[in-house]
Nucleic acid binder design. Sequence first.
DNA 1: TTATCACATGAACGATTGTTCATATGAATG
DNA 2: CATTCATATGAACAATCGTTCATGTGATAA
Lengths: 120, 120
Amino acid sequence: MLDGNGVERCDEFCTHDDLISKLRPELPEEEKLYDLAELFKIFGDSTRIRILYVLFKAEVCVCDIAEVLGMTQSAISHQLRLLKQAKLVRSRREGKTVFYALADDHVRTILGQGMEHIEE
Amino acid sequence: MLDGNGVERCDEFCTHDDLISKLRPELPEEEKLYDLAELFKIFGDSTRIRILYVLFKAEVCVCDIAEVLGMTQSAISHQLRLLKQAKLVRSRREGKTVFYALADDHVRTILGQGMEHIEE
DNA sequence: TTATCACATGAACGATTGTTCATATGAATG
DNA sequence: CATTCATATGAACAATCGTTCATGTGATAA
């Protein structure tokens, strides 16, 4: 499956060696591509998407998110943890309550672009 | 876990009923949010991200993608199928060879925005 | 301090997902 | 036609992921 395995490689006729040697160095670092996939993985769950849309316009506490989405506080809290680790949301404590909000307009843009795509 | 379950709900004091009743109707349709998550799920895999970046500038055949990424033709083909179903890539047949390319600039924008986010 | 409330977290189970292997399709060539 | 080559696809297994349940943490108030 790796290079040099003749069985899995195309013939000389199909494999455009010059194209390949040109493309390879133009790719971003392997690690960045991995991190990028990890980022989109966070967007790739309907519960998290719904949470992000709840936060689209307002700053909301965990309890209210759970209430709006009809899910347990625990499930929401687990997802908020992932969203925060990915820096898609930020949190602010006020007494016993913790308010969450979208981290920046970057998140809004990505959500908007995605929404445009599926509406085509 | 659904509404009306007192155990899982916050108290009156925490639950901001007016905020909730204001937020709920502002959310996009449940189905759209689900579809949006499905879209981002496609971006959320490093193999697919790498394929998309191979296609970022050039139109490339399946065999060459496999060669550049050092993976089997089968694995690449399976992923290209998902990418095409999500309309992130388009394909063009030329004899025995099938060339793939990014579907539109929408895809480029989403990739670019994501890349900016992780580089912050 | 003790009790209560809002939220966070660890373990575990069921469901989803990506790869491999084997095989099938579809196009060109002899 | 039969063969070859590029690609597509089905089944199956390992690994990852999201939820639930139980419990822990941090803050307020009595």
